[in-house]
Amino acid sequence: MWIKNFFIGLSQNQMLNKAAKRYGFKLGAQSVVAGTNVEEMVESVKQLNAQGISATIDNLGEFVFEKDEAIEAKKHILSVIESINQNNIDAHISLKPTQLGLDIDFGFCLQNLREIVSKAHEYNIFINFDMEDYDHLQPSFDLIDELAQTYDNIGTVIQAYFFRAINDIKQYKHFRLRIVKGAYKESPEVAYQDKKEIDENFLRLIEYHLLNGKFTSIATHDHHIINHVKKFVEENQIPREKFEFQMLYGFRKDMQLDLAKEGYNFCTYVPFGTDWYGYFMRRLAERPQNLNLFFKQVFNKKTNTMIGIGLGAFLLGRLSKRNK
């Protein structure tokens, strides 16, 4: 648990976030972020599409507390929607309500989201609402409820560590849903703290939505979970067009390709932009094994290798001591 708290704490450090914007790609962020601009992102998605993999695109953004920042984020996302349409790439949008002004004003955020969803609807592009921490959970569902009265091209995320997740998935089973374990530090009053309990609930939610839901995106790098799902869908004769596997851009590339080659729908979560820091720290908090994958794929120069080995040894050493 300490290592998760460590990375979540880092993700919320605005000073480090600003530094990462300046130096990120010198630190190797290009291995986990598909470019700094729309053009670079489109090329990355085209490469994925050529391998039979679709994409969900996240125009990264953190710590939005001013209206002009939210409006700028909206403009960027609208430009991504236009680029998806113009380039005819197999992709949809993932966004965070806080990036569009949820921490500023609910109505202001709703209007920004309405513009985005409306434009995407014109082009038959799906919009996925990423879920954040518990304080933003119900307001995000409220936004979805408002928009769902008019639009049918929206879906969201169910986080398995929340006690309420089973009720949420039943309420929103008619939506396309991405199911994840969860990547924020949450109180034991609202969320499971034990990995085993989270994993069990994760599988429970996946199985429920596969049997009862519209479309299921299974977001995991865990091959044990993936193998379980493969067996479950075969035993229950669930057609492959009703679900997909999802992983993060830059992680477990061989497994992503293998799943696509096996004929499973596969979608890569593709973040882009300079505001990558908070996103990446939460990925490490969500699954510390990602740290090892990151070092293998990023620290390939001599100097960076020494830094990576040192930091990795420190963190893995701490983790080993905690597990004894």
Rank of each mutant, 00 (worst) to 15 (best):
E40F: 07
F25R: 03
I218R: 12
T156A: 10
R287N: 15
F63Y: 13
G213M: 03
E62K: 12
A219Y: 01
A160W: 12
K185S: 14
E234A: 11
L102Q: 01
F129T: 00
E132M: 13
L319G: 02
E244Q: 13
R283S: 04
F141K: 13
L315P: 06
G278F: 05
S320D: 10
E262R: 11
K324H: 10
I169N: 05
L315S: 02
A165V: 11
S94Q: 08
Y264H: 14
P288I: 03
G101S: 10
D135M: 13
N37F: 01
L293C: 03
Y134P: 10
Q289K: 11
P271L: 08
Q111A: 04
I127S: 04
I309C: 07
R287G: 01
N87A: 12
M281W: 03
D133A: 14
L60E: 03
G52S: 00
T216L: 06
F251L: 15
W276L: 02
V45Q: 06
S83P: 09
G250H: 00
E241D: 11
F314M: 12
G24Y: 04
S217V: 01
A55R: 03
F6V: 02
T156G: 14
Y208L: 02
G52I: 04
M306I: 12
Y161P: 08
M15Q: 11
F141R: 04
H224K: 04
R164F: 00
V32A: 09
K181S: 07
Q86C: 06
A50H: 14
N128W: 00
H92F: 13
E235T: 02
P188G: 09
F175R: 09
L16S: 11
L257V: 02
I125V: 08
R240K: 14
I169G: 15
T274M: 07
N5E: 14
H174G: 05
L203Y: 07
L293F: 08
V190Q: 04
L95W: 03
L205P: 00
N290A: 12
F295Y: 09
L16G: 06
V33G: 09
Y208V: 01
I89T: 08
G107N: 15
I125A: 00
E82M: 14
K301L: 11
G250E: 01
D222T: 05
K18L: 15
D194R: 10
F280R: 09
F251G: 07
I144G: 15
E186S: 06
K302I: 06
G155R: 12
K231S: 15
G24W: 08
E207K: 06
N323S: 10
I3L: 08
L315I: 03
N5P: 01
K195S: 06
G155W: 13
K301H: 10
I84H: 14
E186T: 00
F162T: 05
